[in-house]
Design a protein around this nucleic acid. Sequence first.
DNA 1: ACCTCTTCGCGTACAGTGTTCGCGAAAGGG
DNA 2: CCCTTTCGCGAACACTGTACGCGAAGAGGT
Lengths: 227, 227
Amino acid sequence: MPGQQEPVIWMRPARAPLGRPAERSRAEITAAAVELADRQGLDAVSMRRVAAALNTGAASLYRYVATRDDLLDLMIDSTASEYDLPAPTGDWQADLLTVARQARDIMRRHPWLPHLVITRPTVGPQGVDLLEHVLDALADHPADAAAKLEAFALLCALTALFVQNELAAADPGSARQTAYLRHAAALGDHPRISALLATAPPAVTPAAGAADRMETVLVRALTGVLA
Amino acid sequence: MPGQQEPVIWMRPARAPLGRPAERSRAEITAAAVELADRQGLDAVSMRRVAAALNTGAASLYRYVATRDDLLDLMIDSTASEYDLPAPTGDWQADLLTVARQARDIMRRHPWLPHLVITRPTVGPQGVDLLEHVLDALADHPADAAAKLEAFALLCALTALFVQNELAAADPGSARQTAYLRHAAALGDHPRISALLATAPPAVTPAAGAADRMETVLVRALTGVLA
DNA sequence: ACCTCTTCGCGTACAGTGTTCGCGAAAGGG
DNA sequence: CCCTTTCGCGAACACTGTACGCGAAGAGGT
């Protein structure tokens, strides 16, 4: 039996009961990584840089984490602690919307989060609490188990998508993209795009209302998977 | 004026009219990269490996492409040529659904595509044709320009999300995740998750119907942004 | 107090990455 | 035929994630 691969990081023991005690903890390392990402972006989260932020050597981190991906998983789960989860009201749409609103706030606080949530949907101890809360809010809903799980995934991923879009509109890459659209329209053969560009104000994105649009789309999508 | 950054790759001239002619073309390099990604995954698409597949040196690629990200953009746009875009029927929901169905097929043919579409929403020459088609299908819809653009983005991103989920269910990482869920449920304090795991069959995902669920969610989400 | 056992910290090294520089060679136009 | 301009690309640089192995540190048993 050759398989038998390593389980998720949260199933492996954190500290050893014997021998020399560790000088740091997973939580400290995670916090350092999160702070680094908040300040300088996700690309700045390299083993060496995180280690430097902790005044330690890069190889030392591997006493706490088997791989860099483990560290990213820890970062994701750590942000799930920022939710405030009141008891369900009985109106599942309202309850899920308050979760989504908090998710949006959290992701705007940590601009690197949407990318991670989308590319690596992982649930750790805090994520499990969040999932439990969502399932609690959906307890009276007649949908089956698979549908509810998919609803949770969609809730997270879709908010991440919206926040990512929201944040991308503010960076220079978006300007280049619309510049190319204008260029392509100028070459002819794309009347609809030309008309659309003529209608829209140059590059003004109506930032106000982004949350509202997200919520209407989210509710419709969720009722879709739960049908 | 220090800014004045480089425009998108499709606005830069491909070949020079003077001097020694190039031995390859952007299209050839893109095709090699796509084939490599299809066969060995996106991580195998490194400058050196793509160059090796073309029997050339790594540095030579930089005559055709300014950066690796440019190459990824070329790969995305090249897949947009696989759409078959018939004239709109007048029923925009039906028209957009046929686009979405094709998107799903294309993404399943190129498993690396969802990740790229989600993390780097780029539109090149072929993508512009697709956008024009979608706008044509939406021509009679009363929504404003921004909403239609967002509908297009949502159409692409949401299908990518679904296909990614679909494909992820087949890999071993998903088993580890559910193993942890079971572990967390066994520790108590999460009755909803425990109940859900007891209900669901071990790890059998109902692959059939994935397309249907995607379509219902998609239609609802689209009517949401276009409201 | 010592001794042993186990783990910790981490310098060093390896294989790989994207990208830059600079040179020699190649081709076309005058 | 030469001259201009581009092309191909070997070599190098600054990084990256990760494996190995050693010395040191602390805790428990005696």
